[in-house]
Design a protein around this nucleic acid. Structure first.
Lengths: 114, 114
DNA sequence: GTCATGCGCAACCTCCAGGTTGCGTCATTT
DNA sequence: AAATGACGCAACCTGGAGGTTGCGCATGAC
């Protein structure tokens, strides 16, 4: 058991994160939160976004459920902040799957080439 | 425009990849394909999986649509192989969002600390 | 005090993702 | 040539995701 392959998360735990990232709007929310730091719900919706405030709120809840964002209230605003830890977990998962496959490819190749 | 932030993909293009990874079964398929190389549909389903062959097939189509797997036929078997390139795109995207946020955090901090 | 803003909650609607069954086809085995 | 195994295609069913509207409640602005 090498250190590289040791801590591969189980799909059941990781899938929800990807699922949450799997919607264009949610992903763009994550992106905006990454660029412009904590933002209130109102500034994440705005006209031209094409979705209602409640629509955005629902998406935010999904992201929150997946642990990708967290919120705090200031006055009548609810601010949303990115939780990078979860992003890192997802990233690491992809890293490991890629690594396994690269390893396997190398092994297969050396098997063929003798 | 630094090299780190230059090539952030648009959410509309990246979201489908995450969406495809967002189902536990599909994710476990990706995982298995990473470990055990190209596999025929039949070996991806098997009893105890709890899903029909057609169920698996549908999932494979979704993954294929997202560019995450590709297939080739050998006799009556259809083999499926992982396409790491797409995994890398997803990984890179997460990298960049994380990086932006870390940057922003640092900037905010230095702003506060003067 | 009054008005406007930003949210939270709940009901509702619609559509498609995820799963199934059934049947036909082609390749393999014996 | 008969039987079996792996697929592809199509129809079908169902729950929940994604979106809306409507209303009530604080908080902040004037």
């Amino acid at each position: 058991m090498t250190s590289v392959h040791a801590t591969l998360q189980r799909p059941e735990n990781t899938a929800p994160i990807f699922a949450a990232l799997g919607d264009p709007w949610r992903l763009s929310i994550v992106e905006r939160l990454g660029e412009d730091g904590p933002l209130p719900t109102s500034r994440l919706n705005g006209p031209g976004s094409g979705v209602t405030r409640q629509g955005i709120t629902k998406h935010l809840r999904v992201l929150e459920q997946a642990g990708l964002v967290e919120s705090f209230r200031v006055g009548r605003d609810r601010f949303w902040r990115l939780r990078v830890e979860q992003l890192v977990i997802a990233r690491r998962y992809l890293d490991q799957v890629s690594a396994e496959w690269e390893d396997r490819l190398a092994r297969l190749k050396s098997l063929v080439e003798g």
